[in-house]
Design a protein around this nucleic acid. Sequence first.
DNA 1: ATGACGATTTACT
DNA 2: GTAAATCGTCATA
Length: 212
Amino acid sequence: MSQTFLGKILKQDFYKLPTETVAYQLLGKTLVFDRPSRPLFSGVIVETEAYLGLEDPACHSFGGKKTPRSQHLYQDAGSTYVYLIYGMYHCLNFVTGDQQTPEAVLIRAIEPQKGIQMMKQNRKMNQDKPISFIASGPGRLCQAFGFDLTHNGWSLQKTGRPSIYVLDAKPLSADQIGTGSRVGIGYAGDACFWPLRFYIKDHPCVSKVRPL
DNA sequence: ATGACGATTTACT
DNA sequence: GTAAATCGTCATA
């Protein structure tokens, strides 16, 4: 059986799957940021979280709330949602669901593949530090890739450069994947215990932040 | 106009 | 272990 899907850009249909499924299945696939006149950045996604929209107190669209910041959550599946957090870091999400279903997957960590030297530069790291420090956390990831508000609302199907997209890969087996509660949402009541965080077990690039 | 706060990270005790 | 950094966003008025 030929696996011609390997290395292909994930289509919008993928992002239309249930949000938890997207979060789970993104693990092991490759995030790519392609810009003109710059090294290609890429890395394997090793940690994600699902945010379940109207029903999820931790989600920016909880209860149907729609603000200038969160408007891109209400786009159709398959685009980016980037926002500033704590006044100094950015978080990268992929929008899922249709316009009535403002949900998203937070990309929490990647294992850097291409552009490592410049990622370390962006992070102001010494070149001899291990790659597990580059993008093991949502803020670190955006700092490494250079993502900010100018990358909000981009289609993940955009062609040419600059573009952000994800390359398909062979699905991981269930025993390689860990599940847990989400990080940093202590204000969200019961929702902080929902098992919506997914990560590749024993992977050094998973963020070390401990959930509640 | 004002004030509280956050899907984080880093530095410091 | 705790605290500081830092500012756009949002609710309140």
